[in-house]
């Protein structure tokens, strides 16, 4: 198999063409080649959720997907979430509720929260906690994150 492959994808609205080593995962590609360092890497095993981002409307683990698999896709990272109203609302709510401390888990938390809200998730603390249980946060204790998501849903998010 070839060591590198040419890909073209749209990241936060911008078309990116690159020749990437086939073994490079999507989050490393975005961080190291595209220069979008907002997505974080905590485990490289799909467990911590820090690398969660949106590919073709679905929240995925950037460490579990190869860059070449994203060929032809639309990718949204934390740097691009404010293009959507729900993204902006969550960013504001996270600040208001202090739903982050070190901020390392935050890009992934926001991506998972967007997914929950866009799927029509209810303003139900237990359901939100359940949905966010794939995203690890060592700092906050989660309550303020749940508060932030609840506040956006209660205000009536528009996608």
């Amino acid at each position: 198999m070839a060591q590198t492959q040419d890909i073209e994808l749209v990241v936060n609205g911008e078309t990116i063409q690159a020749s990437v080593p086939v073994r490079t995962n999507l989050v490393d590609f975005l961080r190291d080649h595209v220069g979008l360092t907002g997505s974080h890497v905590g485990c490289e095993q799909g467990v911590c959720g820090a690398c969660t981002l949106e590919v073709d409307g679905v929240a995925v683990r950037g460490c579990l997907m190869l860059a070449v698999q994203a060929n032809g896709s639309q990718v949204t990272t934390i740097e691009g979430v404010s293009a959507k109203l729900v993204g902006r609302q969550l960013q504001r709510a996270f600040v208001e509720h202090n739903a982050l401390q070190c901020g390392f888990c935050t890009p992934g938390m926001i991506a998972s929260s967007i997914e929950y809200i866009e799927q029509g998730g209810a303003s139900d603390r237990a359901a939100i906690r359940e949905h966010l249980s794939g995203n690890y946060c060592r700092c906050t204790g989660y309550q303020s994150i749940v508060d932030a998501v609840v506040s956006v849903i209660d205000k009536g998010a528009a996608a």
Binding site: L36, T37, V41, V95, E96, I110
Partner: peptide, 21 residues
């Protein structure tokens, strides 16, 4: 008071050591 740093971090504009190139 709200944290000014928090606004930066929710935009993905933080700078952690691994972000340095």
């Amino acid at each position: 008071v709200e944290r000014p740093d928090a606004s930066r971090l929710v935009e993905g504009e933080g700078c952690y050591v691994d972000d340095l190139q």
